[in-house]
């Protein structure tokens, strides 16, 4: 554990809390992509099955349980409790275009051809692109509420901070995991355009609005 890793995890935690609070306080999930949330739930389920096969630390276990539980709570709020507020007509990204390549890639490019390892690899690749339906939704409607922007910023920062963590680990422990690093870089790059808009608009008090 180093400061980048901890900051990354806290950023991830913050993103989820922002999202849940936004939905709960406004009693609405308008502007949030249910498809991205389903992909995140699938990501954490596939990755954290190792909760039952190996113990890392109490911190690790608590965070994993939190990520799995909150991802399903988000889905419950979006698809059941506040279903009437879900913008499904703007949430039209075809997730099979992500799931199919990610599945094939996980079967081909992995550290070890075992059940758990392929699920882990699948989750790493899937997480990298899981935000695309959300970004697609923002570009389709041309705008995002400030709170949604803060959520996306925290979520994007998390993998960026992990990249610094990997650089740190490479120099201090000679540890590196190419699959996680490459997927993490791809994941972060997908947010670049959003980061730019966040700094130039949202932080100056303007709404995130794309040029028509």
């Amino acid at each position: 554990m180093n400061v980048f890793r901890l900051a990354g995890d806290m950023s991830h935690l913050l993103a989820i809390i922002i999202l849940l609070l936004k939905i709960w306080k406004t009693r609405s999930c308008a502007g949030i992509s249910g498809r991205s949330q389903l992909l995140f739930a699938l990501t954490y389920t596939a990755r954290y099955l190792d909760l039952v096969t190996n113990w890392v630390s109490l911190y690790n276990t608590v965070m994993k349980v939190f990520f799995i539980a909150t991802s399903y709570a988000t889905i419950y709020l979006m698809y059941l409790k506040f279903k009437a507020t879900y913008d499904s007509n703007h949430d039209t990204f075809r997730v099979e275009f992500l799931l199919l390549p990610v599945t094939i890639l996980a079967l081909v490019l992995n550290h070890e051809f075992s059940f758990m390892e392929i699920l882990w690899t699948f989750s790493i690749y899937l997480e990298a692109v899981a935000i695309l339906p959300q970004l697609f939704m923002v570009s389709k409607t041309g705008e995002a509420e400030s709170i949604t922007s803060h959520y996306l910023f925290a979520l994007g920062s998390y993998r960026l901070l992990y990249i610094f963590n990997w650089i740190w680990r490479y120099y201090t422990e000679e540890y590196y995991d190419l699959i996680a690093i490459i997927a993490g870089v791809v994941q972060t790059v997908l947010y670049c355009d959003f980061f730019y808009l966040y700094f130039t608009k949202v932080l100056k008090g303007k709404k995130l609005q794309l040029p028509a």
Binding site: R5, D9, H12, R47, D50, T53, N54, V56, N60, M63, K64, F67, H111, E112, S114, F115, M116, E117, W120, Y162, N165, D177, A180
Partner: peptide, 10 residues
Amino acid sequence: ILQSFTHDEL
């Protein structure tokens, strides 16, 4: 063996 890799990150 189900898993020989231990992933210590989240």
